[in-house]
């Protein structure tokens, strides 16, 4: 399902004293089966963009098109929002706060049930989703509130996965997790991506973005100010919006300052960096 966003504007609290322009003309196109990240400073409008993708926010002006679904400021045309939500699953920041059922499996099955899936089938889907996030049968009947933070987050993500969306949107999925938890979630997303799903991510962790994403959008003051592959964005241009760059590129930069110039364009990950350094030492 391709996503097409044209000249998207969004204003919070329009016509009130709290008026705030959140988005000022955002354009982008995301093809099928991409792994995309939106990065930018806090308050730059990333989360606002994301909430348009499944109709939680309606554009003030402009157009959001997901496959055949079109969202515009004209409210009467936006009838199929609940269908859209079946195809675009949004996982919010700290999703563990959305858990409410008595058992883990019921909570995960809540989503499919809302989309008119039968009870048995919903439970089946819930079990599949839970297994795919690495929670085995022993968790199914437990209360979601007695799990650890990382486990809760996985249950919450499973709650969206069980709906079987084609596009998975996540707002800071790794916030507040330890490095092992982060890697676990990201490898999970990688797996979803290999299963032909589109993954859209908002993140502040540039290392993870660099490692996993194919394409990066830099958002600043409600506009996309920069885009490209992670390497292009992090290496070639100066980064707007006070973002830090991934550690490996930062390390390269430090080396360069000390007079050791590596071929930065052929470095994509830690292994490349190590190999280049080893070669240098051998010489």
């Amino acid at each position: 399902m391709p996503i097409d966003v044209k000249d998207l504007h969004y204003i919070y609290f329009k016509k009130t004293p709290f008026h705030a322009d959140a988005l000022n003309g955002v354009n982008f196109h995301i093809d099928n089966n991409k792994f995309v990240a939106f990065i930018g400073a806090t308050g730059s409008g990333k989360s606002t963009i994301i909430q348009h993708l499944n109709g939680l926010l309606i554009p003030t002006s402009g157009e959001v098109k997901v496959d055949d679904f079109i969202l515009t400021s004209n409210k009467r045309k936006n009838k199929s929002i609940s269908k859209l939500r079946k195809h675009v699953g949004v996982v919010f920041q700290f999703p563990e706060y959305q858990l409410f059922e008595e058992t883990v499996e019921d909570d995960v099955a809540f989503g499919p049930k809302n989309f008119k899936v039968g009870k048995e089938e919903a439970l089946l889907k819930a079990h599949q989703a839970l297994l795919s996030v690495g929670l085995d049968e022993s968790y199914f009947k437990r209360s979601p509130f007695e799990l650890s933070g990382g486990e809760k987050r996985r249950v919450a993500i499973a709650g969206i996965l069980a709906i079987e969306p084609d596009i998975l949107v996540l707002d800071e999925p790794t916030a507040g997790l330890d490095s092992r938890g982060c890697e676990y979630i990201m490898s999970l997303l990688k797996k979803m991506h290999d299963d032909n799903k589109t993954i859209i991510l908002v993140s502040h962790d540039m290392d993870l973005v660099n490692k996993y994403c194919d394409y990066v959008y830099v958002v600043d003051e409600g506009k996309i100010v920069n885009q490209g592959s992670p390497k292009d964005v992090f290496v070639s241009q100066d980064l707007k919006g006070d973002l830090e760059i991934p550690k490996i590129y930062y390390f390269c930069r430090l080396l360069k300052e000390k007079g050791i110039d590596l071929d930065i364009n052929s470095i994509n990950n830690l292994d490349d960096l190590m190999n280049q350094i080893i070669e240098r030492i051998k010489k």
Binding site: Q51, N54, L56, S82, R85, K86, G89, V90, V91, F92, P95, Y97, Q98, F110, G111, K113, N114, F115, G159, I160, I163
Partner: peptide, 13 residues
């Protein structure tokens, strides 16, 4: 509002 949005994403109307 945040929880409502999260639950709306799970199909709650």
């Amino acid at each position: 509002q945040r929880i409502m949005k999260a639950q709306a994403s799970r199909g709650v109307d």
